[in-house]
């Protein structure tokens, strides 16, 4: 069931029950390419639909979205990305301690999970990944600089820092994959709906 929330004159916020429903609505909206819709922002249980008021209106978009057929989507509907990781992060031992398992088990759990990009938002190219069996707190004091390619955990999410940036996630490894490249047609390696597999590689 989609609920429409007023969000000014140049957008509609569609709220659904959970992440799967949000990804399904997002997939249907991408497919429908409604006239005047200029941007889609999927999130944990919403999709923000930005519109061009010269072409359409919030009311027209609400009507069009209510008329869409939204199917169940398989996660991974925009493809699968494999990310090689050297698991030598500074917080690997802390994460293992917090979960009461060995560092090797942390790696097995991280590589064994089928992750999905739920949504972005922190920085260009950053995807919040769900689907793993983790629940770890953020670091009590964030680091001022985390190198690009750092693989982290926070709450139930995993993610890869696309740029050098400050951050509070627990860093368990690093990848040489380029998460963000303006010379690619799609600069972000991870986009909402993509399936992600982490693979352990030697240093």
């Amino acid at each position: 069931m989609t609920r429409f929330l007023r969000c000014g004159r140049e957008a509609v916020l569609a709220e659904v029950d959970d992440l799967d429903a949000a990804l399904a609505l997002y997939a249907a909206l991408r497919e429908a390419a409604l006239p005047g819709v200029v941007d889609l922002v999927p999130a944990a249980r919403t999709v923000l639909i930005r519109l061009d008021p010269a072409v359409t209106s919030p009311r027209e978009v609400r009507i069009a979205v209510a008329g869409l057929t939204v199917g169940a989507v398989d996660r991974g509907f925009v493809g699968t990305v494999e990310i090689p990781v050297v698991y030598d992060g500074p917080d690997l031992a802390d994460v293992a301690g917090h979960l009461g398992i060995s560092p090797a088990d942390v790696i097995a759990r991280h590589t064994g999970a089928e992750w999905t990009v739920a949504f972005g938002g922190f920085a260009p190219g950053f995807g919040y990944l769900t689907g793993g069996d983790f629940d770890v707190p953020r670091r009590t004091s964030p680091r001022t600089r985390i190198p690009a390619g750092s693989v982290g955990l926070a709450g139930r999410f995993s993610g890869v820092y696309p740029h050098d940036s400050p951050g509070g996630w627990q860093i368990v490894g690093r990848t040489t994959a380029t998460m963000w490249d303006l010379d690619r047609a799609e600069p972000a390696l991870l986009v909402p709906g993509a399936r992600v597999i982490f693979r352990a590689v030697p240093a």
Partner: peptide, 28 residues
């Protein structure tokens, strides 16, 4: 849960003091 925001959104953080998002606002 984080959600998409628009230019002109009046967001209220825990302090209760409004922030009006301008053109360079974050995606969510």
């Amino acid at each position: 849960p984080s959600e998409g925001v628009v230019r002109g959104a009046v967001q209220i953080p825990p302090s209760g003091q409004p922030i009006v998002f301008q053109a360079d606002h974050p995606v969510t």
